[in-house]
């Protein structure tokens, strides 16, 4: 039993340097996930500010309509289908599958992050905007220095959840033949006909990644709570 397991491991990882499938795949997974998260954050903030500026103050009617279409389409269609459409239709001319995946996941995550951040903005008392404006600060200054720092702090757990979901969702990039961690494990399985060791290893690596990420977010959350989140002062 023990001997069989060791033989399996040897076959799956050491023979023909198969561990490299997992190692390289992990690199691709991290690359896609982290870049997509960053793109998602930028889109998310932009869309959230437009949406809430419109709902509260009637600003940006055109941009708001576009943002609503974006949210509807992205949240209304499956990620795999979006990935395939991005790869085969929208970005047909781009060779790098990593770039295709980053954009597809970034645009997808942006929609979910936008709604999370919008919820955060809605949670802030209108008196905060009034106090900022009454001091002579413009709308954008107040939004960026007063509203958003508080909004983000309020929704950090939900944002963290979105990051974790995104990281695991990247495991579908195999659909466009991009070899990430999941696909790497799948290739090992197809070469060795061994199922337990490759898949369980892949699962364990994802789990460790997510646990690390959760720990990091928890630290950030505690930091923001304990220091009273002196974001603005540190920036200036």
């Amino acid at each position: 039993m023990w001997q069989t397991f060791l033989d399996d491991c040897r076959l799956c990882f050491i023979k023909n340097n198969r561990w490299q499938y997992l190692f390289d795949g992990l690199g691709v997974t991290l690359q896609v996930a982290i870049q997509a998260i960053l793109i998602g954050i930028v889109i998310g903030f932009f869309v959230a500010v437009i949406r809430s500026s419109h709902d509260k103050y009637g600003r940006f009617p055109v941009l708001n309509a576009l943002a609503k279409i974006y949210l509807t389409v992205i949240r209304g269609t499956p990620m795999v289908v979006q990935l395939l459409i991005t790869y085969y239709i929208i970005l047909k001319s781009i060779d790098s599958k990593v770039i295709v995946a980053v954009l597809a996941f970034g645009i997808n995550s942006g929609a979910y992050q936008a709604e999370i951040i919008r919820a955060g903005i809605c949670s802030i008392d209108p008196g905060q905007m009034e106090a900022g404006r009454a001091l002579g600060m413009g709308y954008w200054k107040t939004m960026f220095r007063i509203i958003l720092p508080q909004a983000v702090r309020n929704v950090l757990p939900a944002l963290g959840n979105e990051f974790i979901v995104l990281m695991k969702d990247t495991s579908i990039v195999g659909y466009i033949a991009l070899i990430d961690l999941a696909k790497g494990g799948d290739i090992i399985r197809s070469q060795t006909y061994s199922v337990y060791v490759p898949y369980l290893t892949v699962a364990a690596i994802y789990l460790i990644l997510v646990m690390f990420f959760t720990w990091l977010l928890g630290k950030l959350e505690r930091y923001l709570r304990n220091t009273g989140a002196d974001v603005v002062q540190n920036n200036s």
Binding site: G127, A131, Q150, R153, A229, V232
Partner: peptide, 9 residues
């Protein structure tokens, strides 16, 4: 209601 900024000292 004061409207102080709670995230700032």
């Amino acid at each position: 209601h004061f409207n102080l900024f709670p995230h700032l000292s």
